[in-house]
Simulated assay, not measured.
Amino acid sequence: MPASSFSPDFVSRTVSALRAAGCVFAEEEAALILAAARTPAEAAAMVDRRTAGLPLEHVLGRAEFHGLSVAVDAGVFVPRRRTEFLVDQALARSPRARVVVDLCCGSGAVGAALAAALGRVDLHCADIDPAAVRCARRNVAEYGGLVHAGDLFEALPAGLCGRVDLLAANVPYVPTGEVPLLPAEARDHEPTVALDGGPDGLDVLRRVAAAAPRWLAPGGRVLVETSERQAPGAAEVFSTAGLNAELAVSAELHATVVVGTRR
């Protein structure tokens, strides 16, 4: 049902309800909800879920990411806009990649965005969370991507070893002690396994870096998002693992990516 089909009074009440719940961008969120809803009753139910604290993307069932509309099921990690910077860096550095892996794939947004831009690729995604695996399969199906359930590289087909041109891994990197400090939307509605990166936030990054050289093709690259504070330590981890490491930073998106190239 188009948003314009709802009465002005209904639209006003929707905006007011969202604003009262603390939604900073109440008008924009109302427009998205009303555009997605088929009836006033459905719109009201969506507003109720949003005002109860669910992430907007879970309410809508989708997120806009790197020009794509990506399905995001309830309980699945919501792709962040800053992660578009990881995609941009991957495309700029490996524009001819043909074997692409998206680890800790969540909804599969990164893998789908890379495949959409690169064209015909052999795309493999993996996540340990069954809900994420189911969601990602829907998002990468049109690109012929395969989604594997399991823990990091253990989930991947052995035949990919030494053949991966581009490895993107949006690993969890919030230090364990800081998880309770996250906004309630993330803390209460996204899987902890997608957020908690261990005592210093680098536990999963270390595991990815340690195994990446064996899986990458000669000259292949691995890109991992991290925080500005963790970046020096993350780069050192990459170097210790035998990768040529460099940092890429976007001040606009508040995004930091560690790039490792197989020597």
Rank of each mutant, 00 (worst) to 15 (best):
V259M: 06
E225T: 10
G197A: 09
H148K: 12
G233R: 08
N170Y: 01
R137F: 05
G197H: 04
E185M: 09
A241P: 07
S250Y: 08
G198P: 06
G150N: 11
G177F: 05
P232C: 04
R187V: 05
A212K: 09
L182V: 08
A235S: 13
C135E: 13
G177H: 09
D203P: 01
R137H: 09
E225N: 03
G201I: 01
P191L: 02
F238C: 06
V204C: 05
A209I: 09
P199A: 13
G197M: 03
V259E: 11
A212C: 10
V193D: 00
A184L: 09
L223W: 05
T176I: 05
R134G: 04
N139I: 09
G242Q: 11
L181P: 00
G159Y: 00
F153T: 08
G219A: 13
G162S: 14
P191I: 02
G144Y: 15
V222P: 06
D188W: 02
E154I: 04
W215I: 06
H254I: 02
T261E: 15
D188S: 05
E246L: 12
H189R: 13
H148I: 12
V208E: 06
R229W: 14
S239C: 12
W215P: 07
E178R: 15
V179F: 05
R163P: 00
P232F: 11
L156N: 03
A158Q: 13
E252I: 06
P172S: 02
G219I: 09
F153D: 11
E185T: 14
E228K: 00
V224Y: 02
E246H: 13
E225L: 04
L146A: 15
G220N: 12
E225W: 03
A234W: 10
R206Y: 04
R221N: 03
S239N: 12
G162I: 10
D203G: 00
F153L: 01
G198Y: 09
G198H: 07
A149Q: 14
G219W: 13
L253D: 13
P175N: 13
E252G: 00
P157F: 02
G162Q: 08
G201H: 11
D165K: 04
T256K: 05
A155V: 05
V257T: 08
P175G: 07
V140C: 11
R187Y: 13
H148P: 03
R214H: 13
G242C: 12
V204W: 00
H189Q: 14
A141M: 14
R214V: 08
A149S: 15
G159T: 15
R207Y: 02
C135F: 12
L160P: 09
A184Y: 01
A248T: 04
A248E: 12
S250I: 01
P191F: 00
L205I: 15
T261C: 11
L167K: 07
P199K: 07
P175V: 10
E236K: 08
A210F: 00
E185W: 03
R206E: 14
A251G: 10
